[in-house]
Amino acid sequence: MSSMWKKTAGAALLLTLLSGCHRQIVTQTTVSTSGPIRVVFIPKNSGNPYFDAVNTGFKKASGQLGFKYTQLAPATAEATNQIPIIQQQIQNGVNAIAISPNSTDALAPVLKQAMQKGVTVITVDADMTGSESSRNACVLPTDFSQVGSSQIELMGSLMGYQGKFAILSATTDAPNQNFWIAGMKQALKNPKYSKMTLVGIVYGNDDPQKSLLEAQSLLTRYPDLKGILAPTSVGLAAAAQAVESARDAGRVQVTGLGTPNQMRRYVTDGTVKEFALWDPSAMGDLAGTLAYLMAKKSVQPAPGVHFQVPSGGSYQFGPNNVLSTGPLLTFSKSNIGSYHF
């Protein structure tokens, strides 16, 4: 027994010394060139209603253009959980990977591997900021530079452009959230909003329980609070729930970004008058179409290039090959009935 172990260990050691270590260089292309084009979408996590809507859009594009589409979600939104899925899909010879990255830095190496093997990689909903070279193109839901100012306008119009309000965000380091919050702070410098005071920014980690706790704490900490602005769907629902529980609906205005399905009740019962979001299914549709056409080599993204969608509509690639899907939609009691995502 002992000698066997020693031999094995010796052999392993010898092998290491003999062969010398080297970094693996990827050269061969594994992407299948025959058969239908295969596209996978990897959302941040499964069971997330927002990505269900994005998935609908992908399915629609797949039905119209005739490519094979699969959605594969990691169980939880941790940075590393998407890595095995990406590797498996590379091995499966998928033609295009669309991904909503959970972490830019942690995913960059494996996405680069995918690109080296000839897989088309596009990011959806959020970009690989700082590592743009690890994806071919990016589809964002809307022009992010406008989100901050339009959210402030929405909040302002609801609270009569005066009084105290607070922001309920996701995590302290969520790139999209921080970008939008910076936009909001910028917009607040406009004299139009001079009577509005941002009293604080709190973070609910996109966890329903935590977000509710934070929203309740805002209500008790600032008895004269006029508004809560939550640019995240979990936070927005939690803020509405907190205001409803505290029976504060008249006093505190709640708005932000959320899906109609999650907000329907609060809009119907008057807790929330208006809130906004882009159309996630349109984003899925656009991303699916782009992934398919790029995998077919019909589209070569480059800044300034126009991208003609077969079903109609034209988009222009911005800097870093970013496409933005469409405008923000505002939902209220009058129109929420016609949206189902």
């Binding site: 939880t76 509710l212 629902a237 729930q241």
Partner: peptide, 11 residues
Amino acid sequence: FSIVNPGETGK
């Protein structure tokens, strides 16, 4: 919480 999410609830 007025919601039940398959991944988040009770995690």
